[in-house]
């Protein structure tokens, strides 16, 4: 009766899902174990697990669904990672401004102002005569 054998129920002590019940799904190597159940399905160091007395029958490397059935039968809750629904990105079209156009537009009004001023004066003189 090994301590961290496949199917051993234990409690995770460290990390985000500390205090949650999980089951050993696969023994990766003497220090690491694959764990699933109320915690996320992940590789965990056995130092961060507290083994409990109970064990459940589980074949090594069981999928999340198998673990889920067994856990639900035992009345334990299971962690289901919600698929990330990123909202559809609004495709804002880049306002393509021709840099060149901008420059010329700026330059023109300056010149016009000067001409019209001169022309007006000339006209004024003619009308007076």
């Amino acid at each position: 009766m090994a301590l961290f054998e496949v199917g051993r129920l234990c409690v995770k002590l460290a990390g985000r899902d500390a205090g949650r019940k999980c089951v050993v799904v696969e023994q990766l190597d003497p220090t690491y174990v694959l764990v699933d159940g109320a915690t996320r399905r992940k590789k965990v160091n056995i130092k961060h697990l507290e083994p409990l007395a109970e064990t459940i029958e589980l074949n090594s490397g069981a999928s999340h669904e198998e673990v889920k059935d067994v856990f639900e039968k035992l009345g334990l809750d299971v962690f289901d990672s919600k698929p990330k629904q990123t909202p559809p990105r609004k495709k804002h079209l880049k306002k393509v401004k021709d840099k060149t156009e901008k420059k010329t537009v700026k330059a023109k009004p300056k010149i016009e102002k000067k001409d019209t001023g001169v022309v007006k004066e000339a006209k004024g003189i003619e009308e007076v005569r």
Binding site: C10, V11, L13, A14, G15, A18, G19, H48, E50
Partner: peptide, 23 residues
């Protein structure tokens, strides 16, 4: 930290407490 008792207990004390609870 995003851990039960995060910001209240240090990691060692949290582990110790959870171990007692489990046992």
């Amino acid at each position: 930290p995003e851990r039960p008792y995060g910001g209240m207990l240090c990691s060692a004390c949290t582990r110790q407490l959870l171990k007692q609870k489990a046992r």
